[in-house]
Design a protein around this nucleic acid. Structure first.
Length: 463
RNA sequence: GUCCCCUUCGUCUAGUGGCCCAGGACAUCGGCCUCUCACGCCGAAAACAGGGGUUCGAGUCCCCUAGGGGACGCCA
């Protein structure tokens, strides 16, 4: 039997970070087993589902490079099938019509609260024979009384839910549309899903669904309920924790590979391995190695991982990734000359960036027009003395016939000797004039990459 | 309220009864390197929630307590 997993988000918002990890785990499990990873949009609640959210989910998965197999299934398209299933259950006495009003149901829950039981539907319409006028009934599943439901979960282990906790869930709303509970079971069965991997918030749903599988005469899939991701404070991840949408991480300059690596390590591990390729993750992944305790999202660790991925990315690919941002910052299209400068210095630049935005920022001086804008630190460094010093250095550098890393370095060093100053006293003003900052890659590399004309020009501007 | 789950350094985790006076990674703090900042390298500090058992032996098994999380919709 080949593995078939699925990611089944409801299109009511963006693809959040927890969903992204659920998708990753499903993808990993499918790829590991040489099986299929399917995508299903759970849009049974038509009023809350939006096309924008569907697009956001696609975009998020594509960005993370989690490719799905076959066509996307829109759950709403299967409504007729779901209805037929409900009718069948009704005909076999496994479901019944319920005429309770929302007010009645609310009162029921209030009462249950006082009595100290589960907040559940009490089954009062189960054997009702009269048909109240003016009320469109819902169809409820007749949840079997008696035996506990045992979920043999691949992550949670054996979980036993008392039957008394499981009430008669709604299968068909009063307008005849199917609910999620019926739809997932039917679609997972119809799509031949073998492993349902989702958040633990669905654990009790699994018990209800198991009852449905039994009533329908179907073999249930394997279940794996993975722990949720929490915010830094241990509470459920929410907006106040900052970025939640996968798309925001792209905008913040995270690499998809780093994201996958980080997310994979949240709740799953392979010994002490911290940094691994997606291929390795596919090879190593197993549900048995997924933990049961919730993990907190650690932004700094993600950034650290991202920085190592940036360093491992080739300079051409990296240039392609930052070129749009660089051009935007420069306010005009980049020239081949700019491209050469940036790629030449990228090996140095990328050691200093934890995300792509920092990289763009650090590379900006290479494509900026003269006269350079100086930041506060840089203009502080360039006082009158420093400017005079630079003027002298400029004429020395101007005499150079061959502008290369070694000749430039030799010139600056001997200039420092002649001035009787430590190199640092020369390097900082030079850096300020050349980059507009107090911080940059090595000054000789900067000099070389900028080239004689541009470097001398910037020195003239500053001196 | 009822039910379910969780609990190893600040954080992510290794650990499946002896290999653990608990290992790795991020963060933190020192140091080296050094033209700045990084990178890199070296080093330090830092945890088995508490209490009972079981066992020759428990982070690992059982029970209780505490704390945390989740579920209980004509949402998914």
């Amino acid at each position: 039997m080949t593995v078939v997993t699925r990611f089944a988000p409801s299109p009511t918002g963006f693809l959040h970070i927890g969903g992204a990890r659920t998708a990753l785990f499903n993808w990993l499990l499918a790829r590991h087993g040489g099986g299929q990873f399917r995508l299903r949009i759970e849009d049974t609640d038509r009023t809350r589902s939006t096309p924008e959210a569907v697009e956001a989910i696609f975009a998020g998965l594509r960005w993370l490079e989690l490719d799905w197999d076959g066509d996307v299934v829109f759950q709403s398209a299967n409504a007729a099938r779901h209805r037929q299933l409900a009718d069948d259950l009704l005909a076999r006495g496994r479901a019944f019509r319920c005429y309770c009003t929302p007010e009645e149901l609310a009162a029921m829950r209030e009462a249950a609260k006082g009595e100290g039981g589960a907040l559940r539907y009490d089954g009062r319409c189960r054997d009702r024979t009269d048909i109240p006028a003016g009320i469109d009934p819902v169809v409820r599943f007749r949840s079997p009384d008696g035996d506990d439901v045992v979920i043999d979960d691949h992550v949670q282990g054996e979980v036993r839910i008392p039957a008394a906790q499981l009430d008669d869930l709604v299968l068909l709303r009063s307008d005849g549309t199917p609910t999620y509970m019926l739809a997932v079971v039917a679609d997972d069965h119809d799509m031949k899903v073998t492993h349902v991997v989702r958040g633990v918030d669905h654990l009790t749903n699994a018990a209800r669904q198991l009852q449905l599988y039994e009533a329908l005469g179907w073999t249930p899939p394997a279940f794996a309920h993975i722990p949720l991701i929490h915010g830094p404070d241990g509470a459920k991840l929410s907006k106040r924790h900052g970025a939640m949408a996968a798309a925001e991480y792209r905008e913040m300059g995270f690499l998809p590979a780093a994201m996958r690596n980080y997310l994979a390590r949240l709740g799953w591990s392979h010994g002490d391995d911290e940094i691994f390729s997606t291929e390795q993750a596919v090879e190593w992944f197993s549900l048995a190695a997924v933990g049961r305790s919730p993990a907190r999202f650690d932004f700094e660790k993600l950034r650290s991982l991202n920085s190592t991925y940036i360093q491992r990315t080739g300079d051409d690919a990296l240039y392609a990734a930052i070129a749009p941002g660089l051009g935007h910052m420069a306010g005009r299209p980049l020239t081949p000359e700019h491209r050469n400068r940036v790629t030449a210095l990228l090996p140095e630049l990328k050691k200093r960036a934890k995300d792509l935005r920092e990289l763009v920022d650090a590379a900006h001086f290479l494509v900026a027009d003269r006269p350079l804008e100086l930041d506060q630190m840089a203009s502080g460094i360039l006082d009158a003395d420093a400017r005079e010093l630079l003027a002298r250095l400029k004429s020395r550098l101007g005499e150079l016939e061959v502008w290369q890393g070694d000749t430039v370095e030799a010139t600056v060093r001997s200039f420092a000797d002649d001035e009787g100053l430590p190199l640092g006293m020369i390097a900082q003003p030079l850096r300020a004039a050349l980059t507009g900052r107090a911080v940059s890659p090595g000054i000789f590399e900067v000099l070389q990459v900028l080239g004689a004309a541009e470097a001398l020009g910037r020195l003239a501007d500053a001196a």
